[in-house]
Design a protein around this nucleic acid. Structure first.
Lengths: 155, 155
DNA sequence: GTGAATAGTTGACAACGTCAATTAGTATCC
DNA sequence: GGATACTAATTGACGTTGTCAACTATTCAC
């Protein structure tokens, strides 16, 4: 009776699931870690009226080079139509604006407004704290290692 | 003209996006890696009539202990109603069946059929090859490290 | 200048996530 | 042993996300 599983009806003598092959499956683990992390990030961003997706776009808009919508779609691996929706909402919130490209009238450049920059600075802190919660089981060195390995896979 | 970016209209003298803070953001990287990985997995699983989600459930059903639907929901972090839908489709395909729990008639035990086991064995290989593509930039040792770090975060 | 390609936009549709309510069965507590 | 609380599975609703095709305006290439 020392086992918390005793009250739940599983099969074969109250034996728990073992995850079989999935526990060694990087893709499964990545999906699970993402679910955990984006859940925390979502909570952290809610007070700012931002979702995870919009935060990522705002982050790009706040970078040193204002991106085009196409840049954003490529970088975030989004369909261009999704970028439209996110920027519509960010623009409605007053965080970014669409500006003309100097030499190509097809192109929109997404610039952060003052308000967008200020909000991003705060949101960034909140996300950072959320990250600390998600990665609490890792040492600083492990975090570093994880980041660099993911970076290799991601690009 | 040696630069492939020269044909695409970006801002500030054809300078590319630098990703700003996102490149050091574990959550962003995880999301991106997941998108890449599940894309490959989806392609690999399509010939079997399986989606990524259904493959994960089938994997559990093919494990040493047949799970209950509740076990599956907990392990995959799904709402119980989503499990219903996935098992409905797996059952319609003849890959699993719902069996009675010996001591609790509320509970369904999800068992793989012969066909389910056979299909899983093949699908597993296909997923493994897809994984090799996704993780091609990592050495075997790095893959091992990545897996164990993700495991620490995931559970 | 004509034809091919690209940026952004709109709309449609399936898949996914979340939540509330229902039904059937089991456990608890008096 | 009977009322009460809890749990497993299911259904249905609703908003979000992912994917795709089509369209317009503009630029590029020959």
């Amino acid at each position: 009776m020392t086992d918390a599983t005793a009250t739940r009806p599983s099969i074969a003598g109250e034996q728990r699931i073992d995850g079989s092959d999935l526990l060694g499956d990087v893709e499964f683990l990545v999906a699970r870690v993402r679910a955990i992390g984006s859940g925390h990030a979502r909570e952290a961003l809610a007070p700012f009226g931002l979702r995870v997706r919009a935060y990522a776009v705002l982050s790009l808009a706040c970078g040193s080079v204002s991106p085009t919508q196409r840049d954003i779609a490529d970088f975030l691996q989004l369909d261009p139509s999704q970028v439209v929706a996110v920027i519509d909402s960010l623009e409605a919130s007053g965080f970014v604006r669409r500006a003309q490209h100097p030499r190509d009238r097809r192109v929109n450049i997404v610039e952060a407004t003052e308000q967008g920059l200020a909000t991003y600075a705060e949101a960034r802190e909140a996300v950072s704290r959320a990250r600390d919660r998600s990665l609490g089981s890792l040492s600083a060195e492990e975090r570093e290692t994880l980041t660099s390995l993911l970076l290799k896979v991601a690009f």
